[in-house]
């Protein structure tokens, strides 16, 4: 059962209202989501380098900042592969490298449909000290983040993760739903989670001007994500759930900035934390690196 603190509910309702009443006349194209995946894949041959940071102060723990550096490469138009390198720093404790994740996203259908499935497969080797909160599954709770670095770093998690991503682009809205299942490769149950999101550009048509601070460069949205228990206890008891408005800003020279406050919706969640993302896209990287066109390459 979800115990919703009433002031948080009011704040969430206010943010939802604010979001819905934004003057959406139209857009920027990359989704500003931090947790949810849409069916957008990296364009083939492109490499995007993105840093995603999470900053928080858990109720009973020390303040921390976590940083995930992501290298995302478009291997094919239907396949994107990504490497994440994670680290964190906790006030009064230490700064740690917490591990890596390698993920792959595949579009099994070669055309666009009303709902577009993407299959996501990930292997991660991270320590329990990881604080990036890039997904919430099972019975993840705020107190997990209170464990001192010196203790948490010793616990290594080799995990496999599968996601079913469903995503639709309708009238310039993107609507995405992710179903997450994660398995510690040791003796542990399958853990489940969800992430859903919507986003819409602030302006659809391009003005035809080179501009930085204009509505067409911004995209706003809302994410909701949380844990759904595990195979040992498939319930919402002691699960975390967050609601997170998101905004993305397309900067000149293939750079992108995104920002999101996450608001905890249950007692087990953190009250709030903040995320900032910065991305830079290198286009056609393989041609540039190899210094020649890949002759006769079948994409």
């Amino acid at each position: 059962m979800l115990l919703l603190a009433s002031h948080r509910l009011r704040l969430a309702a206010f943010l939802l209202l604010l979001f819905v009443s934004l003057p959406f006349r139209g857009t920027a194209q990359d989704k500003p989501y931090f947790v949810t995946y849409s069916h957008d894949l990296e364009e083939p041959g492109n490499l995007e380098v993105e840093t995603k940071s999470a900053i928080a102060r858990p109720e009973h723990g020390h303040h921390f900042g976590a940083l995930a550096t992501e290298l995302e490469y478009g291997a094919r138009a239907w396949w994107t592969t990504e490497l994440y390198l994670d680290g964190q720093t906790t006030g009064g404790q230490s700064t740690l490298f917490t591990g890596f994740r390698w993920e792959n996203r595949f579009r099994p259908l070669m055309h666009e449909y009303a709902v577009n499935p993407v299959l996501y497969v990930e292997f991660e080797n991270i320590s329990a000290a990881d604080k990036n909160v890039l997904e919430v599954v099972g019975h993840d709770v705020e107190s997990d983040l209170d464990v001192p670095n010196a203790v948490a770093r010793a616990e290594h998690q080799h995990e496999g993760e599968l996601k079913l991503i469903l995503s639709s682009n309708v009238h310039d809205w993107n609507i995405s739903e992710n179903f997450i299942s994660e398995k510690n490769l040791g003796h542990a149950p399958w853990e489940f989670g969800y992430a859903v999101a919507v986003a819409h550009p602030l302006r659809a048509a391009s003005s035809g001007r080179e501009c930085t601070l204009c509505a067409e460069k911004f995209i706003a949205g809302l994410e909701a994500y949380g844990g759904l228990g595990d195979t040992w206890d498939l319930s919402l008891r002691q699960t975390s759930h967050y609601l997170a408005p998101v905004v993305g800003w397309q900067l000149p020279a293939h750079m992108r900035l995104s920002f999101s406050p996450s608001l905890g919706m249950t007692r087990s969640s953190m009250d709030q934390f903040y995320r900032v993302g910065f991305a830079y896209e290198f286009s056609d990287i393989d041609n540039k690196l190899l210094g020649h066109k890949r002759k006769g390459k079948v994409w």
Binding site: T27, K31, E43, R76, A77, M110, H171, A204, W299
Partner: peptide
């Protein structure tokens, strides 16, 4: 996608 042309459904119409 099979032949390397991305989908541009993510651009506004």
């Amino acid at each position: 996608l099979k032949h390397g042309m991305p989908s541009w459904s993510n651009l506004p119409q």
